[in-house]
Computed example of a mutant assay.
Amino acid sequence: MDITAINEMFANIRENTDWDLNGPMLWGYFFVNTTPEPLHGLGEKLVELGYTLVEVFEPDLEEGEDPYHVLHVERAEVHTEASLDARNHELQALAEANGVEDYDGMDVGPVEI
């Protein structure tokens, strides 16, 4: 996701939700690989960096799709458009350094208290 898409995402959240983007939000980050092993290794490294491991799973596939696995981690943190762009670059580099095929992006929601 490039900075333009991030700017649009933030604008959409501000316009369509009552979420306070100036406070901590629960950010989920996703990584994709053909096999699960590199995802488990990356997940351990991300836990050491303060992320919470949600799961490594094989998604339900449409007929004819090649199987793949997804790593989902999350962390409550505050982001601006620029800091989220920097985080995406950081996570892409971590994926590459750990033999994971793709950093697949993020989602966001309110922190459940």
Results as ranks from 00 to 15, higher is better:
residue 1 M to P: 08
residue 1 M to I: 12
residue 1 M to K: 08
residue 3 I to R: 02
residue 5 A to V: 14
residue 5 A to Y: 13
residue 7 N to A: 12
residue 9 M to R: 11
residue 9 M to W: 13
residue 10 F to A: 11
residue 11 A to M: 13
residue 12 N to H: 10
residue 12 N to Y: 09
residue 13 I to Q: 10
residue 14 R to H: 15
residue 15 E to H: 14
residue 15 E to A: 14
residue 16 N to H: 04
residue 16 N to C: 00
residue 17 T to A: 10
residue 18 D to R: 08
residue 18 D to K: 08
residue 19 W to S: 06
residue 20 D to Y: 09
residue 21 L to N: 08
residue 22 N to Y: 14
residue 24 P to A: 11
residue 24 P to N: 09
residue 24 P to Y: 11
residue 25 M to R: 03
residue 27 W to L: 04
residue 28 G to I: 01
residue 29 Y to Q: 06
residue 29 Y to A: 03
residue 29 Y to N: 05
residue 30 F to M: 02
residue 31 F to H: 01
residue 32 V to R: 07
residue 32 V to S: 04
residue 33 N to Q: 02
residue 34 T to L: 02
residue 34 T to M: 03
residue 35 T to L: 01
residue 35 T to W: 01
residue 36 P to A: 07
residue 37 E to T: 09
residue 38 P to W: 01
residue 39 L to K: 02
residue 40 H to S: 10
residue 40 H to C: 07
residue 40 H to F: 14
residue 41 G to N: 06
residue 42 L to D: 02
residue 44 E to Y: 10
residue 44 E to K: 07
residue 45 K to T: 13
residue 46 L to Q: 02
residue 46 L to M: 07
residue 47 V to F: 04
residue 50 G to L: 01
residue 51 Y to H: 10
residue 51 Y to N: 05
residue 52 T to H: 00
residue 53 L to M: 02
residue 54 V to A: 05
residue 55 E to R: 05
residue 59 P to R: 03
residue 59 P to T: 07
residue 60 D to K: 01
residue 60 D to F: 01
residue 60 D to A: 04
residue 61 L to D: 07
residue 61 L to R: 06
residue 61 L to M: 08
residue 62 E to S: 01
residue 62 E to F: 04
residue 62 E to C: 00
residue 68 Y to F: 02
residue 72 H to K: 03
residue 72 H to D: 06
residue 72 H to P: 04
residue 73 V to F: 00
residue 74 E to H: 06
residue 77 E to W: 14
residue 79 H to G: 03
residue 79 H to E: 06
residue 81 E to W: 11
residue 83 S to V: 14
residue 84 L to P: 13
residue 85 D to R: 09
residue 86 A to Q: 14
residue 86 A to Y: 05
residue 87 R to M: 15
residue 88 N to Q: 14
residue 89 H to A: 15
residue 89 H to V: 15
residue 91 L to S: 13
residue 91 L to A: 15
residue 92 Q to P: 11
residue 93 A to E: 10
residue 99 G to W: 05
residue 102 D to S: 09
residue 103 Y to G: 07
residue 105 G to M: 03
residue 105 G to N: 04
residue 105 G to R: 04
residue 106 M to Q: 09
residue 111 V to Y: 09
residue 112 E to H: 12
